[in-house]
Simulated assay, not measured.
Amino acid sequence: MTRAATSLTEYWDTYRPYRGEGEQPRPAADAFAWTQYEGHGPGAELLGSPRTALELGSAEGKEAAYLAQRHGVEVTGLDFSATQTARARRWWQDTPGLTFVEAEACAHLASTTASYDAIYSIWGAVWFTDPDQLVPLITQRLNPGGVFAFSQAEPIEGYYGPDPMYGNGLAGRKIVVVRWAYSPTWWADLLKRHGFTDIDAQILAAPDPRDVGTLLVRAQRPA
């Protein structure tokens, strides 16, 4: 039985727990996936041809490793969880140009002096951070001509805004996790207000249209 988390930090430390035996094996970094369905949707080409990239909510780090190994991108993977960060460092320590940082997304973006050609999030920190706070900070750290892209579950139509939930379900300590869900139109308007151009915000339908689709957003900072 998986032990219930007792704090928000511990919730992310134990997110998607390994249920096998022995040491968790390192995942293959042989694909870059935006959606929850294998082989579905676009890949790394959505980011263009960045020299540097920042992933917000990198978790096990396989997409960051893919960019570094296959495309020679200098990638920083950022995650709020010390456990997830330590695991990613252990798994990918032999990958040149790949760094993992333990930090909260807004705190890192507000304090770093680094800038990036691409900032992206795959079902990660963009979903779990207030966009009114996060997007202005992303704008500041994105190089001219740079790409901001992210994916998460499609929102339930008519139920937009912050969506609190109990991280432990209906048993255990009260760990409140908030997700921000908005329509593609809302995202396009927000990004336009912050100076982004070439905005594409859409719901990518699942292979079976009866299943949950993916909100996929891409925008560019003017050169």
Rank of each mutant, 00 (worst) to 15 (best):
M1Y: 03
R3C: 09
R3S: 14
A5E: 14
T6F: 05
T6N: 15
L8A: 14
T9Y: 01
D13R: 12
D13A: 13
E23M: 08
Q24M: 15
P27R: 09
A28T: 12
A29I: 02
A29V: 04
D30K: 11
D30P: 11
A33N: 08
W34R: 06
W34C: 02
T35E: 08
Y37W: 15
E38K: 13
A44P: 02
A44R: 07
E45D: 14
G48V: 07
G48M: 11
G48E: 13
P50C: 11
L56R: 03
G57D: 09
S58Y: 03
S58W: 00
S58I: 03
G61C: 06
K62H: 14
K62W: 13
A64T: 08
A65M: 06
A65N: 08
Y66F: 15
Y66L: 07
Q69K: 13
R70D: 04
E74P: 02
G77L: 08
G77A: 06
G77V: 05
D79Q: 01
F80R: 11
A82C: 07
T83G: 04
T83V: 15
A88E: 10
W92V: 08
W92K: 08
Q93V: 03
Q93P: 00
T95F: 03
T95I: 15
T95Y: 05
P96Y: 09
P96F: 12
P96L: 06
T99M: 04
F100C: 09
V101R: 09
E104P: 04
A105W: 05
A105K: 07
L109R: 02
L109P: 01
T112S: 14
T113P: 00
T113C: 01
D117Q: 09
D117V: 03
I119R: 00
I122G: 00
W123G: 04
W127S: 10
W127V: 00
F128Q: 08
P131E: 06
P131G: 05
D132K: 02
L134H: 06
V135E: 05
V135P: 02
P136L: 08
L137S: 07
L137Q: 13
L137M: 11
T139N: 01
Q140T: 06
L142I: 02
G145D: 00
G146L: 02
G146N: 05
P155L: 06
Y159P: 00
P164I: 11
Y166W: 11
Y166Q: 13
Y166D: 12
G167R: 12
N168L: 04
N168W: 01
G172I: 10
R173Q: 13
K174T: 11
V176T: 15
A181M: 15
T185Y: 03
W187A: 04
A188N: 07
A188H: 10
L190K: 15
L191K: 04
L191I: 07
R193W: 03
R193P: 09
H194T: 09
G195D: 09
F196K: 03
F196Y: 12
T197K: 07
T197A: 14
D198N: 13
D198M: 01
A201M: 04
A206K: 05
P209E: 06
V217C: 06
R218L: 04
A219H: 01
Q220M: 10
Q220P: 00
R221S: 08
P222N: 06
